Amino acid sequence: MELFNQTNHWAEKLQPLIQKYQGKKHPLDYQNTYQLMVMVILSARDSDANINKIAPQLFEAFPSLESLTQINLETLLPYVSKVTNFNSKASWILEIAQTLKEDKNIPQTMVELTALKGIGRKSANVIMRETNAPAEGIIADLHVIRVAPRIGIIPETADGIKAEKLLMQALPKDIWSEIGMAISFLGRETCRPSKPKCPECPLQNDCKYPLKTI
């Protein structure tokens, strides 16, 4: 009963944030599920801005998984060479292409997505949220890991898997799909690491951040 009351408490408190960012597209500038999956893999330990910059040329050359099945690693590398850990990521993407063969075979469940090389829970949650698949977890990117404890939802942790687990315990499942991305957008736009824009925050009355300026 205590946990139920806690999750209901946060569900109510977080509604203004969910309403603000409901359905807002991820900052990765993808056009379809194939592009989304590839860009999510490439974006690990890199910036969305950098991936958006290299994506047009990459997808002009290789517009589908099927096109990737026709090439080798040496052919792909020049298109992703400006991405962090590009050699491994390129290998993972080519392995996924050989496994799935066609775009229509891209899975939308946690078990199937995380079985693919280069896709962990965070990446799978992003793909599932952006494709409107039923949520099986909560996006816990670097912004969420930083902001969720600041708000007071979970204790501080640098571990994304632990942060996601804590969020799943603290929040009702019916908001899992949107809340991770909503907190991420809050961290990108308002709740900055330094000098957060607290007066602009939809959670300003409930946030636990001790240095609020309001």
Rank of each mutant, 00 (worst) to 15 (best):
M1H: 13
E2L: 09
Q6N: 14
T7Y: 01
T7H: 06
N8Y: 02
H9L: 07
H9P: 00
H9Y: 08
H9W: 07
E12W: 06
K13E: 13
L14K: 10
I18Y: 10
I18S: 14
K20I: 14
K20W: 15
Y21A: 11
Y21I: 11
G23S: 10
G23W: 08
H26M: 07
Y30L: 01
Q31I: 00
T33N: 15
Y34R: 02
Q35P: 04
L36P: 05
V38C: 06
I41A: 00
L42H: 00
L42A: 01
S47H: 13
S47N: 11
S47A: 12
A49T: 04
N50T: 07
N50W: 04
N50E: 07
I51L: 03
P56K: 10
F59N: 04
F59W: 08
A61D: 00
S64E: 06
L65E: 11
E66D: 00
S67F: 05
S67E: 06
S67Q: 03
L68E: 05
Q70I: 04
L73D: 01
L73N: 01
T75M: 10
P78V: 08
P78L: 07
K82M: 14
T84L: 00
T84S: 03
N87T: 09
S91T: 13
I93G: 09
A97N: 11
A97Q: 10
Q98P: 09
E102H: 15
K104G: 15
K104R: 15
I106S: 13
I106V: 08
P107S: 09
P107Y: 12
T109C: 09
T109D: 12
T114G: 05
T114R: 03
K117I: 01
G118H: 09
K122S: 08
K122E: 14
N125W: 00
N125E: 05
V126I: 14
M128V: 02
T131G: 05
T131Q: 04
A133S: 14
P134C: 12
A135C: 11
A135E: 12
E136P: 06
I139T: 14
D141P: 03
H143T: 08
V147L: 02
A148Y: 05
P155Q: 12
T157D: 10
T157K: 06
A158M: 01
K165E: 09
A170W: 03
A170S: 03
D174G: 01
D174C: 01
I175F: 07
E178N: 12
E178I: 01
I179R: 08
G180K: 06
M181S: 06
F185Q: 08
L186N: 10
R188E: 14
E189S: 13
C191A: 13
R192G: 05
P193Q: 12
K195L: 06
P202Q: 03
D206K: 01
C207F: 08
C207A: 11
C207H: 11
K208T: 11
K208P: 00
T213N: 12
T213W: 08
T213P: 08
I214P: 15
